[in-house]
Nucleic acid binder design. Sequence first.
RNA 1: GCCCUCGUAGCUCAGUGGAUUAGAGCACUUGUCUUCGGAACAAGGUGUCGUAGGUUCGAAUCCUAUCGAGGGUACCA
Length: 566
Amino acid sequence: MDTIEKILKEILREEFGADVLEEGEVEISVPPELSGEFRADYATNIAMKLSKKLKRNPREIAEVIREKFLEKSKIKVEVAGPGFLNFMLPDEYFIKKIEDFSRNEADFLENISQDEYKDKVVVVEFSDPNPFKVLHIGHLYTSVIGDAMSRMVEFSGGKVHRVNFGGDVGLHVAKTLYALMKNKDSLEEFKGSEEAEVIANILARAYVEGTRAYEESEEAKGEIVKLNKQIYEIAEKKIREGELAEVYFRGREASYRYFDEFYEKIGVKFEKYYPESEVAERGVEEVEKHTPEVYQESEGAIVFKGEEFGLHTRVFMNKEGLPTYETKDVGLLFTKNDDFKFDESVVITGNDIVEYMKVVLKSVEQYAPELVRKTKHITHGMVKLPGAVKMASRKGNFVKAVDVIRSVEERLEDLGLALGAIKYSFLKYRVGGDIEFDIDESVSLNGNSGPYLLYSAVRAKKILAAETDSSKAQSAEPWALSMAEVKVCKKIVEYGEVLGEATREMAPHLLCSYLFELAKEFSRFYESCQVRGSEREKERLKIVLAFQRVMEHGLGVLGINVPEEM
RNA sequence: GCCCUCGUAGCUCAGUGGAUUAGAGCACUUGUCUUCGGAACAAGGUGUCGUAGGUUCGAAUCCUAUCGAGGGUACCA
């Protein structure tokens, strides 16, 4: 492909002058499958692009390029459709590539290496569950996406710090503790339990009750607001005396312990938790320092007026004098930078806060533009369940993350497989919009599913592990690739490019689509080409090995492990 | 009201300037198999790309309008 590009540029320069190149790069794409004799491996639309500029018929231009190209290279060229140039690479090209992929691990990695984030320090923040609230399916989703994105950055040379932000103080905590302390039975159970999951469930229930009380009763609302202030003080000054403090720290500790157990289970490792209480102060500092130039007092609160920037106004310090989430996000941004001196900060959250985040970042941009420039906010949608009503943790109709894992695990009778199935079914969608999670579909063993991909990799492993039939000597004739062989080789060889694009776009779904197509091509190859015991055993084993390496690597980047058996 | 995102096959989704026939998976029907693991492969067909205009050699893709869904819009995040 690089060769094609090089030769094309050369021809363009010679035939049409140096200036025609200015207008963008030469684009080379993989064309759709066309019927007919000619197998097109690559194509370019350059002739059409030039036609306007040169005021010549695109097919005519393509014809000129084709003739010159044939003089310079062994690659076959054809003009098609309105003026596309199709290229067909000789078999030797693929054979050599497969050789490179299958020789040894080091050569394989060399061939697929990426450098998008070479020597870059990247902080990736995601998952962000709140202590004292439920850890639901949405957290599972964002954890899976964030981990896959982190792995892509890592593979392309970045030093990644996975961090997690959560509200250990704030109104939601007050709501939870209010309800918990009102309910004697829950409180007893809470105090008597050691298991993190049990405590987490008690807290999740209390949050629902507390929220209801906050919305339904003015009296409760007043008490919760008061409680909120007390909790701030307890958290900030680390006060240990009194029942409230005791309950608070016990709940907080159990929440974080529960998170740790959960991440361990799904194979995601966070380097650091940033509890809100630990970044609030830094945020307050910045906000106060830049009031009134950036932030202004209004109705007893401190706000940032986003209207001048086409955004909306948000409150940073409420009239109780407490920092809101906005200020904590400001503090978090500065704290992350202090801690890691990052080149890029990626923040992954739900898309419901996209406008909110714009306001926060716009305010910071007024006094720390560099920090904002290095920050990238990636948003995803919600996880919908077929036929279910919309989830809201404050209403209590959520689906817990652990329950999702458990039910899939029950169906597949294996945790590793279950995680592979769940992760793949999340990652195959483009990140951004809402997604639908259908348990039946994710555990399905065929179609575009995790198990289908895993199966193809396991199958390849089995072929590789089988006994070599040494009685079959390698055929002496040159190896003319069959259609099935060419197709699977072509796919295998594409891997590096796809991985690069997925990384640049932070789009794991591109990798998923590719791996699915790859698995399909491999299955077809498997059906039509006997490996063990065939005359081409030696060569075909190389294809199998190259495939297996790519599949295992690709799934690895997605955070999915290939088992030995399934 | 204003701002943002999204409308593609019965369902779930890719495709976001290029290929005469807009692609996958699911579901449905029928084949292949004494297999290197059938958890497989092959064949079968559906679309006013929400609607209407516009730009372009060329539009699902860009622009405008419009309809519909979701989110945000001062002390939740």
